[in-house]
């Protein structure tokens, strides 16, 4: 999987490393901004009220 991505990135090793780093940052950003905020309410820490 990661080997496949690496082989398909353009440029020499340094450029590929730079692009990889950027890709990782994009993934982390998407996770923190969209995926985790969606997933977090599924955990029990939000239940602090008494209700029916």
């Amino acid at each position: 999987m990661y080997g496949w991505i690496w082989r398909h990135l353009p440029g020499n090793t340094w450029i590929r490393a730079l692009i990889s780093l950027l890709l990782v940052l994009v993934v982390v950003y998407v996770l923190f901004q969209y995926v985790f905020p969606w997933a977090e309410p599924l955990l029990p820490f939000n239940d602090v009220t008494v209700n029916n």
Binding site: V28, L31, F32, F36, A39, E40, L43, F45
Partner: peptide, 14 residues
């Protein structure tokens, strides 16, 4: 890695 990131999100980022 996803789990570690998620824990960091819940414990720290929130």
């Amino acid at each position: 890695a996803l789990i570690v990131l998620f824990v960091a999100y819940v414990l720290f980022w929130t």
